[in-house]
Amino acid sequence: MKLSHVSLLMVLLLSSVGCLSSSGEQGAGTTNPEVAQQVRSQVEEFVTAAQKSPRNAPANLSLMIESLEGASDRSDAFVHVQDEAQKLQELYQSKAAKDQIATQLTQLQEAANQLVANEN
C-alpha cells in the first residue's frame, strides 16, 4: 500500500516536471501566477506526503527540486522556494533532528505560499 502512495506521488511530481521544465517554448503561454500556483500545489503535496511518510521524503524532494529548477528563472521568489527545498535536502542528508526538518518543511511551505501572495 505504501508503495502505491509513493508511486502516485512520483507520478504527480514527474508530471509537473513537464509543466515547469522551462520558460522557453513549452512554457511560453504559462504566466507567473499560473506557475506560482503550480509550484505552491506541488510543495503542499510534498509537505503533506513528507509528514505522512518521512522515509520517502528525501527521494521525493530530489524529484521536486529538479522540477523547481525550471521555474527558478522566473523571479527571485521562485529561487527562494528552490533554496528552501535545498536547505531541506541538506537536513535530510545530514540526518538532522525531526524538529529541524519540521521547521524547514514549514519554511518551504511559507516560501511557496509567498509565491501566490506576491502574484496577487
Rank of each mutant, 00 (worst) to 15 (best):
residue 1 M to D: 09
residue 1 M to K: 06
residue 2 K to P: 03
residue 2 K to Y: 05
residue 3 L to T: 15
residue 4 S to Y: 08
residue 5 H to V: 10
residue 6 V to T: 07
residue 6 V to S: 06
residue 7 S to Y: 08
residue 7 S to M: 13
residue 8 L to A: 14
residue 8 L to V: 06
residue 9 L to A: 14
residue 9 L to N: 11
residue 10 M to T: 14
residue 10 M to L: 12
residue 11 V to F: 04
residue 11 V to C: 05
residue 12 L to G: 10
residue 12 L to D: 12
residue 14 L to Q: 13
residue 15 S to R: 12
residue 16 S to R: 15
residue 16 S to P: 00
residue 19 C to T: 12
residue 19 C to R: 13
residue 19 C to K: 12
residue 20 L to T: 13
residue 20 L to Y: 03
residue 20 L to C: 11
residue 20 L to E: 04
residue 21 S to D: 10
residue 22 S to L: 00
residue 23 S to A: 11
residue 24 G to I: 00
residue 24 G to L: 03
residue 24 G to S: 08
residue 24 G to T: 00
residue 24 G to W: 02
residue 24 G to D: 09
residue 25 E to C: 08
residue 25 E to A: 09
residue 27 G to W: 02
residue 29 G to W: 09
residue 30 T to A: 10
residue 30 T to N: 08
residue 32 N to E: 14
residue 33 P to K: 11
residue 33 P to D: 06
residue 34 E to N: 06
residue 34 E to K: 08
residue 34 E to S: 11
residue 35 V to E: 04
residue 37 Q to V: 12
residue 38 Q to N: 09
residue 40 R to E: 14
residue 41 S to D: 13
residue 43 V to N: 03
residue 45 E to W: 04
residue 46 F to Y: 15
residue 46 F to K: 10
residue 47 V to F: 01
residue 48 T to V: 15
residue 48 T to H: 12
residue 48 T to Q: 15
residue 49 A to R: 07
residue 50 A to S: 13
residue 50 A to T: 07
residue 51 Q to A: 12
residue 52 K to M: 13
residue 52 K to G: 05
residue 53 S to V: 04
residue 54 P to H: 06
residue 54 P to Y: 06
residue 55 R to D: 07
residue 56 N to T: 07
residue 57 A to E: 05
residue 58 P to C: 02
residue 58 P to V: 08
residue 58 P to W: 01
residue 59 A to Y: 06
residue 60 N to E: 09
residue 60 N to D: 10
residue 61 L to M: 09
residue 61 L to K: 13
residue 62 S to P: 00
residue 62 S to T: 11
residue 62 S to H: 12
residue 65 I to W: 04
residue 65 I to P: 06
residue 66 E to D: 09
residue 67 S to I: 01
residue 68 L to P: 04
residue 68 L to E: 00
residue 71 A to I: 02
residue 73 D to F: 01
residue 73 D to A: 10
residue 74 R to N: 07
residue 75 S to V: 00
residue 77 A to N: 14
residue 77 A to T: 05
residue 80 H to G: 01
residue 80 H to R: 14
residue 81 V to Y: 06
residue 81 V to H: 08
residue 82 Q to F: 02
residue 82 Q to G: 02
residue 83 D to V: 13
residue 83 D to Y: 07
residue 83 D to E: 13
residue 84 E to Y: 03
residue 84 E to R: 15
residue 85 A to V: 08
residue 85 A to K: 09
residue 87 K to G: 05
residue 88 L to M: 04
residue 88 L to F: 02
residue 90 E to V: 06
residue 91 L to T: 07
residue 92 Y to E: 00
residue 93 Q to D: 12
residue 93 Q to S: 13
residue 95 K to E: 11
residue 96 A to L: 00
residue 96 A to E: 02
residue 96 A to I: 02
residue 100 Q to N: 10
residue 100 Q to R: 12
residue 102 A to N: 12
residue 102 A to R: 10
residue 102 A to S: 15
residue 103 T to L: 11
residue 104 Q to E: 15
residue 104 Q to V: 03
residue 104 Q to C: 01
residue 104 Q to W: 06
residue 104 Q to S: 10
residue 105 L to R: 08
residue 106 T to F: 04
residue 106 T to K: 14
residue 107 Q to S: 12
residue 107 Q to E: 14
residue 107 Q to R: 13
residue 108 L to I: 06
residue 108 L to R: 04
residue 111 A to K: 07
residue 111 A to N: 05
residue 112 A to K: 04
residue 113 N to T: 03
residue 114 Q to F: 05
residue 115 L to C: 00
residue 116 V to A: 01
residue 117 A to G: 00
residue 118 N to H: 05
residue 118 N to E: 13
residue 118 N to P: 00
residue 119 E to T: 15
residue 119 E to Y: 00
residue 120 N to M: 09
